[in-house]
Design a protein around this nucleic acid. Structure first.
Length: 155
DNA sequence: CGAGGGAGATATG
DNA sequence: CATATCTCCCTCG
């Protein structure tokens, strides 16, 4: 396991983590302690370029290429539905719960967002409270920056 | 299997 | 704005 240090000038530094088979396993918006930083490998150039220029460009990865081992079915469903939400749009926790098959599970959706391994790619910053912005584990400030960069308006 | 905790929602003052 | 109450799913033991 190793990570790469990228700089996204619109938002913040980004640290994608890759495993020994070169799969992207995680995207961190706060520098993790546990991995060594290595230079970008050839096969990761595309995804790294995307993360650096976010929100410009289009995600080179499909949902099926992401790793969600050990997650519950509900969480995976939530991540998949959110993955398809276009840039610039927002959705409430409650609505995301509803389209994921459990109308009243807004708080559980919050838990899923908090443990989302792929911020930016699975756009948890586009999930807002019904009455306000809501929280963000890497810091609400980054949630605001992301939404502004995308041109989203949430209230 | 049960208890307790949320990145929530809603109603009320 | 604050507080109170309801709700569901997940985690941990």
């Amino acid at each position: 396991m190793y990570m790469v240090h990228l700089t996204n000038k619109h938002i913040c530094d980004v640290f994608p983590v890759f495993d020994d088979t070169d799969r992207l396993t995680e995207v961190c918006l706060i520098r993790p302690e546990e991995f060594d930083i290595k230079p970008v490998k050839k096969e990761h150039e595309e995804i790294c370029a995307y993360l650096e220029s976010y929100p410009d460009g289009e995600c080179p990865l499909k949902f099926d290429e992401l790793v969600f081992e050990g997650r519950s079915d509900f969480h995976k469903t939530v991540y998949k539905n959110l993955f398809n939400l276009p840039k610039g749009e927002v959705i409430t926790y409650g609505r995301l719960a509803e389209v994921s098959g459990s109308k009243k599970a807004a708080r559980a959706v919050g838990t899923a967002m908090g443990t989302n391994p792929y911020p930016l790619i699975v756009p948890c910053h586009r999930v807002v409270r019904s009455d306000s912005l809501g929280n963000y584990s890497s810091g609400v400030h980054k949630k605001v920056k992301l939404l502004e960069a995308e041109g989203a308006h949430w209230k």
